[in-house]
Design a protein around this nucleic acid. Structure first.
Lengths: 218, 218
DNA sequence: CAGCATCCGCTTTGATACTG
DNA sequence: CAGTATCAAAGCGGATGCTG
C-alpha cells in the first residue's frame, strides 16, 4: 500500500496495518497462536490465496510476524506473531468493543467461525466470581466447538470442547452471543433456536448485565 | 469497500472504518471538533478531493458523521462526529500508542501538522501533579502553534498559542516529541534544533519517564 | 496436500481540471 | 468554499497452475 506520508502516529500505524485483510490476519494469529497457512486461509474466508501470501510477507518484513519450522512430527511452516505483533491486541480488542453492536445484524452470506465469537466474548465478558472454582462453558455454533474458561477474573476462549463443561450452549451464533452479551434473555435465545445443558447459573457468572440492546435488526 | 462477509466484530468494524482514509478523517474530526471541508482537506494532505467527499458521505450514511449548518456569521457547512463516531476515540488512542515507535523515523516527504503531534502527546503524557496549578506548554512546529494543557490529571492539546505559557518548545517535530515522550533529554533536543523558553521544570511535570528508546533511525 | 506464483478482468484510488 | 467530472494507474478477487 502507498504510505499516507504523514508524520502522525495514526497514519504511520495504518501504513503498516491499514491494508485490506492485514488486521484480520493479525486477528487470526492472536486467536490461534502459531498457525499454518491453510488454517489461516480457513479463518479468512474470501481472501485470495496470493493476497494471503503477500500480506504474510509484508508482515514478516515489518517484523510483526515470524515464520518458524514446526518440529519433525508435523514438519510444516508455522506463522506466529512477534512481540511487536502481539502488541496489536489492545487495538483489536477496542475494535471488538466498538464493532459489537454491528453483530446485531447477521447478513445472509456472513461466514461464521466459532472462534470469532469466542474471541469477541473474551473482550466483552468477565468473571463476576473471580475466587470461585474454574468455570467452563462450551459453545457449539459455526464450524467447531469453542470453550470459554474463567482465568484470573477474565474469560478466555480456546478451540475445542470441554471434558466436563459446567454448561453448554448450542445453536445459531447470534442469539448465543446476544444472550451472553446481555442483549436478550435465555428464554429469547431458546425461542431463537438455542439449546442449553447444565446449570443456567453458570451463565450468570460471566454474563454481561442486560442493558440497552441494539436495534433488533436482521 | 466490499464487505468482508464475516460474522465477526473485527471484520464488521473494518467493513465500516477499514476503508483507506476513513480512520484518518475520524482522527481529524476528533482533533478539530466540527470542521469545514477545507480544513479537513488541509489536515489530510494527499487525499483526493473526490475521495474526501465520498468518504464523508459514507460516514454520514453509517451514522458516524453529521452535517450541520454553521450559524449566520460564517454560514458554512460543518462536519462533526456523532456520539457513535466519538466512540472510535479509544480505538484511535490505541493506534497512537502502537504507532508511536514509528515516529522515530521521519521520512523526507512526510507532511507535518502540529495538531497531530499534540494529539499523540495527549495519549502518551499525563500530569504528574494533578492538584497543582494549571500548566500550559506551547509547541511551535509544523504549520501552526499548538498548546498542551493539564486537565484532571490528563494532558489536552488545543489549536493556537497560549497567552502566558509556562514554557515553550520550538523547532523540528521529531526532537520535540522525542523529548516529551522521554526518548531523549533536553540537551539532545537542543542539539537537534529545539529551542525552549520558560521554566524547564514545567516539562518534567508532564514528561514521560525516560525509558528504552526506539532505534534512532532516520 | 501445503504454500505459494501467474494471469486477467474489475474496482478503487490518485491527480488534475472544472463548477455552482 | 465545497464540492463534481474525468481518466490513468494501482490494487483486489477469482481462477488456475506449479512445486516440494
Amino acid at each position: 500500500m502507498r504510505s499516507y506520508g504523514e508524520y502522525c502516529a495514526v497514519a504511520k500505524s495504518l501504513d503498516v496495518v491499514g491494508n485490506r485483510w492485514t488486521l484480520l490476519i493479525v486477528r487470526e494469529l492472536l486467536l490461534r497462536g502459531p498457525a499454518r497457512y491453510t488454517d489461516l486461509r480457513d479463518g479468512l474466508p474470501g481472501i485470495a490465496t496470493n493476497l494471503l501470501a503477500e500480506r504474510l510477507r509484508e508482515l514478516e518484513e515489518e517484523g510483526l510476524v515470524a515464520r518458524v519450522q514446526a518440529p519433525p512430527p508435523v514438519a510444516t511452516t508455522l506463522f506466529r506473531l512477534t512481540p511487536r505483533g502481539e502488541e496489536l491486541r489492545p487495538v483489536i480488542e477496542r475494535l471488538v468493543l466498538w464493532g459489537m453492536p454491528l453483530m446485531a445484524q447477521q447478513l445472509p452470506n456472513d461466514a461464521v467461525r466459532s472462534h470469532w465469537i469466542g474471541f469477541a466474548l473474551e473482550s466483552m465478558l468477565s468473571d463476576h466470581d473471580p475466587d470461585g472454582p474454574p468455570l467452563m462453558i462450551e459453545l457449539r455454533t459455526g464450524d467447531q466447538p469453542v470453550t470459554l474458561e474463567t482465568h484470573d477474573g477474565a474469560v478466555r476462549a480456546r478451540f475445542g470442547s470441554a471434558d466436563h463443561p459446567d454448561a453448554v450452549l448450542a445453536g445459531p451464533p447470534k442469539p448465543i452471543a446476544g444472550f451472553l452479551i446481555g442483549w436478550i434473555e435465555l428464554a429469547d435465545a431458546e425461542a431463537a433456536g438455542v439449546r442449553h445443558e447444565g446449570d443456567p447459573k453458570a451463565f450468570d457468572r460471566v454474563r454481561a448485565l442486560p442493558e440497552a440492546a441494539p436495534p433488533a435488526t436482521a
